[in-house]
Simulated assay, not measured.
Amino acid sequence: MTGRSIFLLAALVGGAILPVQVALNTLLRRYVGEPMQVTFISYLAGALASLAICILARYPLPVVASLSQTSWWMWVGGCLGTFYVWSTIFATPKIGAALALALTIAGQMVAALFLDHYGAIGLVRYPASPTRIVGVVLVVLGVSLVAYVKA
């Protein structure tokens, strides 16, 4: 496996588990009630799992001096993740997992294209070439098929 392959595989597997997460969270909503309550449970379980992995892997605690050098907006990632999890729990029962995830993927692709193009938020700059733009357009067209084609 090449050096890049492990990163490609990690991204692919990470994407493949999202429908499972959405299905589990949607099922949990039937027992818990509100999407934000399920979001809290999901993040609590994730935080505990992350803590356990850090302890088992013997990762050191972050250095307070390093954390104090960050900007407030760097901590917003968890809030954005909360919104993502909530939105899928909220939408999936009404539009289905395939369409909910297709829409999130389309949104991710459009936003990622802009972030890459401008090298925003500390990312390495990858220009929005015509090929990359066509790829994102094809994703959006695919979402349209998931949304509007009736069996």
Rank of each mutant, 00 (worst) to 15 (best):
M1T: 15
T2G: 09
T2A: 07
T2E: 07
R4T: 06
S5Q: 13
I6M: 13
L8T: 00
L8K: 03
L8V: 03
L8A: 02
L9I: 14
G14A: 01
G14R: 00
G15E: 02
L18Q: 04
V20S: 06
V20D: 08
Q21Y: 06
V22R: 00
V22C: 09
L24I: 02
N25Q: 01
R29Q: 07
R30K: 11
G33D: 06
E34D: 14
P35A: 10
P35V: 03
Q37R: 13
V38F: 01
T39A: 10
F40K: 03
F40L: 12
S42P: 05
S42Y: 04
Y43K: 04
A45N: 11
L48E: 05
A49K: 12
L51F: 12
L51E: 04
I53K: 02
I55A: 13
I55V: 11
L56D: 04
Y59Q: 13
Y59C: 08
P62L: 03
V64G: 08
S66G: 11
T70H: 12
M74R: 08
W75D: 05
V76D: 04
C79M: 11
T82A: 11
F83C: 08
Y84S: 11
S87D: 06
P93R: 04
K94P: 01
K94N: 14
I95Y: 05
G96C: 06
A98K: 02
L99F: 03
A100L: 00
L101T: 00
L101G: 00
L103V: 01
L103A: 07
T104A: 12
T104D: 05
T104K: 03
A106Q: 08
G107T: 01
M109R: 03
V110W: 04
A112V: 00
L113S: 01
F114N: 06
L115I: 09
D116G: 06
I121M: 13
G122K: 12
L123Q: 15
R125Q: 14
R125D: 14
Y126F: 15
P127L: 02
S129P: 14
T131R: 14
T131H: 12
I133P: 05
I133K: 08
V134M: 13
G135Q: 01
G135D: 01
V136H: 00
V136D: 00
L141F: 02
G142C: 10
G142Q: 08
V143G: 02
V143W: 04
V143L: 10
L145T: 10
A147N: 02
Y148E: 11
A151N: 15
